[in-house]
Design a binder for these strands. Structure first.
Length: 423
RNA sequence: GGAUGGUUGGCUGAGAGGUCUAAAGCAGCGGACUUGAAAUCCGCCGUACCGCAAGGUACCGCAGGUUCGAAUCCUGCACCAUCCGCCA
């Protein structure tokens, strides 16, 4: 959500931003509703002022005089009820429209319609070369019996999976290496709820427009698709202390996604599943653009370093305007080489929001002058499992069907090769 | 799932239909006294919206209702505490 004053003063800028994001935003409609809101508000405030004044008179007045004022008050009350009803309806429309206004993308965001227009900003390593015909992770894992997709579907349905044996060890190894790597960067580990109330999704900008992407319980909570939701809501309606340093969390949670709009895509394997696990970086900082930019680069770099630790070829793209979410100012995706598909696939997404989320969540801090301000927020994937296993396994597969364990993971897996006979 | 009691400013806590413009204390800020500090004394000390300003309005967990008037009464919801039941 943006500040209504800011929207008023920068209507043209916001319209241009929406165009760049290929989103519809009825700014003129919003401003008209806002005019009406202000008018009704003033009208009602004046009536309430009179009511308060008269109410004091009633206390002093006696007998017939008192009865007369009370009768006049009843008339006033009827008029107020009407104003209140109109204001209530206007407010509903105002809130609905306010939630649809997209944040303005940064100048540096490339133009474009969808992910095909994202721009590569960095490339690390070269696509893995094999002296044999490489297999995809589904074949490799099934052959080694470290995953079971058939029974996954039997038990959990479409996109269901089991990890088995060394597949479990590998996922665990990634979690532990991630905890070590990202903690060392200065992020505090946090284990967060996945079953979360609606406000947190509204606050982070996943609702109201993303209802179809979320699982919902019969009690009205939703299953979060990322730890970002609970982590951001951790400080909802609070004033936090940012005087010394930003808030920096490394959150872990199960993640649930309906993938409602992706029915035909990635129907096999571990790329796109309904439930997975993820370490997520979440940051709250002072409301300064430079600080947001600095931390955004830092978060993304943390993840790049982790991928380099795993030794997997990747590139980083700057997402184009059409590939940005409602609240995002700028976003980088890190995409890893997937030999089985002969292409790069997304593993991480780093974004900053300015005060778009904190305004909805009401997370503020006091600046050096003691004034209350909405903080800035950012988040970035640290690493998701099991999707990361796809790239590890396919890039580290060997001619004999075994998998070399990336050196950094060996201490956590407890072996240097997965699938060796007798091991 | 059942029962009971709660939710008031940064914190503690009074408040029970009409100066609530929310007592008091603590913490904080400014000042006096002091070489400095403590103690003491004086003053200030919530947020948001509208307004050039004067000022006005709203907010006592949230949403409704009763009333001329609600922190206060009524209803629903959320959350907290304690007890019972169930349980990894």
């Amino acid at each position: 959500m943006l500040d209504i004053h800011f929207i008023r003063e920068n209507a043209a800028l916001i319209k241009a931003g929406a165009t760049k994001k290929h989103m519809d935003a009825d700014i003129d409609g919003l401003l008209a509703v806002d005019d009406e809101r202000k008018r009704l508000r003033q009208e009602l405030d004046a009536k309430r002022a009179e009511q308060n004044r008269r109410s004091n008179e009633i206390q002093i007045a006696k007998g017939a005089e008192r009865e007369k004022i009370i009768e006049a008050m009843q008339h006033l009350k009827n008029g107020m009820a009407e104003s209140e009803e109109r204001l209530k309806n206007v407010m509903l429309e105002w809130q609905r429209l306010m939630l649809t206004v997209p944040n303005i993308p940064d100048m540096s965001v490339p133009d474009g319609v969808d992910d095909a227009d994202n721009v590569e900003v960095k490339k690390w390593g070269e696509p893995t070369a094999f002296g044999f015909a490489p297999k995809d992770h589904i074949d490799i894992m099934t052959a080694l019996d470290i995953a079971d997709f058939g029974r996954g579907a039997k038990v959990a349905g479409f996109r269901g999976y089991f990890l088995k044996g060394d597949g479990v060890l590998l996922a665990n190894a990634v979690w532990q290496l991630a905890l070590k790597h990202f903690s060392a960067k200065g992020l505090s580990p946090l284990s967060v709820p996945s079953l979360v109330r609606r406000e947190a999704f509204l606050g982070t900008g996943y609702l109201p427009q993303g209802e179809d992407d979320l699982y919902k319980t019969q009690d009205g909570e939703y299953l979060a698709g990322t730890a970002e939701v609970a982590t951001m809501a951790y400080y909802m309606n609070e004033t936090i202390d940012l005087s010394k340093h930003p808030v920096q969390f490394l959150s872990f949670s199960p993640c649930f996604r309906r993938e409602a709009g992706a029915h035909g895509k990635d129907v096999r394997g571990l790329i796109r599943v309904h439930e997975f696990f993820k370490w997520e970086q979440v940051v709250l900082c002072k409301a300064e653009h430079d600080e947001s930019v600095r931390l955004h680069e830092w978060l993304n770099r943390n993840t790049e370093e982790f991928i380099e630790l795993l030794g997997i070829p990747y590139h980083t793209v700057a997402n184009c305007g059409g590939d940005l979410g409602l609240g995002q100012v700028k976003k980088y995706d890190i995409e890893l080489w997937v030999p089985g598909e002969n292409t790069y696939r997304e593993i991480s997404s780093a974004s900053y929001f300015h005060d778009f989320q904190t305004r909805r969540l009401n997370i503020r801090y006091r600046d050096a002058e003691g004034n209350l301000k909405f903080a800035h927020s950012l988040n970035s994937t640290a690493i998701p499992t099991p999707r990361i296993l796809v790239s590890i396994i396919e890039n580290y597969q060997q001619a004999d069907g075994t998998i070399k364990v990336p050196e950094a993971l060996v201490p956590y897996v407890g072996k240097s090769v997965i699938g060796e006979a007798g091991r």
